[in-house]
Simulated assay, not measured.
Amino acid sequence: MQLYNNLSAKEREQLIIDAGQDRLTISFYKYAKIQNPELFRNHLFITWNELDVLGRIYVATEGINAQLSVPADNFEAFKKHLDSIEFLENVRLNIAIEHDNFAFLKLKVKVRNKIVADGLNDDSFDVTDKGIHVDAEKFNELIEDPDTVLVDMRNHYESEIGHFKNAVTPDVDTFRESLDLIEEDLKDHKEDKKLVMYCTGGIRCEKASAYYKHKGFKNVYQLEGGIINYVRQINEKGLDNKFIGKNFVFDQRRSERISDDVIANCHQCGEPADLHTNCANEACHLLFIQCENCKKQMENCCSTQCMEVNRLPIEEQKALRRGQGNSNDIFKKGRADHLAYKKDLRNIFDTIKPKE
């Protein structure tokens, strides 16, 4: 019984090319009690592998978080399988605005302690007592209300390339960091302000809204389906788009363009740019923003040192990496000191200013 990938990314890419079929990029999540995550994981892998599903899926006792791609011809079979699982029947599927047949090149279904690393003790509050879900139309109304504080629940490298107008964008590296910072800065407005949150697909707000209600916030709202679902709704209903820039996504595409605005800058030269890239030096692989000119001059690397290493024969590169593991830069996501125009840390207490 195969419970793992037996093809490399390059081999899988060639199979997708040979198949000549369009694939749909999809994400979904569901909080639910899963008694045996390991058994559930195996069931998903066996079934989805047969349907040629590729992607990154996390399973835990608290539920499932999935980002994947499926051949368009297999979508109905995939949906039928989801509906056969009681807690996933009619689950909301966030279908990408821009599809890429190579968004994912492997099927990875992993058992984790949590489906989102939030660092919270779920036993200390009622995770089912969530905020009010709102659609795109209601969301647009709420964020024009002077008594609303709009908060982006994503990390700095996500909001750096795109966010909603007038949103507070905490300059944090992790979801967990933002939770206490936001609560502290809004502690005097738990009853008189509307706390409206959004994230990529809704999963972070699902937990955050329950956490903030537990902390005493009386008016808590969250954008149903996140940015992905918002964009689909404004396109279908002809609503005003309040999002500027690009939406960061966690697959090979790295982003979807929502508006023509370029609100970020190249981390190397400072020119307007919003394309994330991974340093070509496999021993670094830092995620950062690089314009086309710097990409050409720096050969897709984040520094001259990495460029020199990347020019070495592959065997010499492997010898240098042997026993070293990944550089810590891989986790910095645009904050490495050698990036001249990296996003600087700011004091979140100075950036969150509830409207008077």
Rank of each mutant, 00 (worst) to 15 (best):
L54M: 15
K108I: 02
K130D: 01
D171N: 15
I85W: 01
I46L: 12
D135I: 03
D83G: 01
P146Y: 11
D173S: 07
E89A: 09
K79H: 00
T47V: 15
H133I: 11
F78K: 01
D147R: 13
F102C: 11
F87Q: 02
L82D: 00
T169S: 04
P170E: 01
F125Y: 08
G119T: 10
D118K: 02
S84F: 01
D52I: 09
N74Y: 02
H163P: 02
R112C: 08
I64H: 05
E86F: 02
L150M: 07
E89H: 10
D152G: 11
R92T: 04
A72C: 06
H133R: 13
L105I: 14
F45C: 05
V149E: 13
A77G: 02
A136I: 05
E158A: 09
S84E: 02
L68K: 10
I143T: 09
A167P: 03
P71R: 03
N140T: 13
A136Y: 05
K108G: 05
I57R: 12
I161N: 01
M153W: 04
K110Q: 15
K80Q: 01
V172I: 05
F175S: 00
Y58M: 14
V53L: 13
F104G: 05
S159A: 14
V53C: 13
F102H: 14
N155E: 08
P170I: 01
D126S: 00
N155S: 12
H81M: 04
L51F: 14
I132H: 13
E76A: 07
R112F: 06
N113F: 11
E98T: 10
G162T: 08
Y58C: 12
D52K: 15
I85V: 12
V109R: 01
F78G: 01
E158I: 08
T148D: 14
K108F: 04
S178M: 03
F102M: 14
H81I: 03
R176N: 10
V116S: 07
E62I: 05
P170K: 00
F45M: 06
E89M: 05
I64C: 06
R56I: 14
N166L: 11
D73Y: 13
V91H: 00
L142W: 11
R56F: 15
R176Q: 10
H81R: 03
L93Q: 00
N74V: 03
D129S: 12
E177H: 07
Y157S: 11
R112M: 13
V59I: 15
E98W: 04
E158K: 08
H81Q: 08
S69H: 03
K106M: 06
P71K: 03
L54E: 15
A167D: 03
L105E: 14
T148K: 09
L88E: 00
K110R: 15
D52R: 12
A103Q: 04
K165Q: 11
I57F: 12
V134E: 07
P170S: 00
N49Q: 15
L88V: 00
T61P: 09
D52L: 14
G119D: 08
L105G: 12
Y157N: 12
D118A: 06
V172T: 10
N140W: 12
E141I: 11
K110T: 11
E50P: 01
D152L: 09
V70L: 07
L181F: 13
K108H: 05
E89W: 04
I57Y: 11
L120R: 00
T174M: 04
L181M: 15
L54Y: 14
N94T: 13
I115E: 08
D122Y: 09
V53A: 13
K106V: 05
F45N: 01
V91C: 00
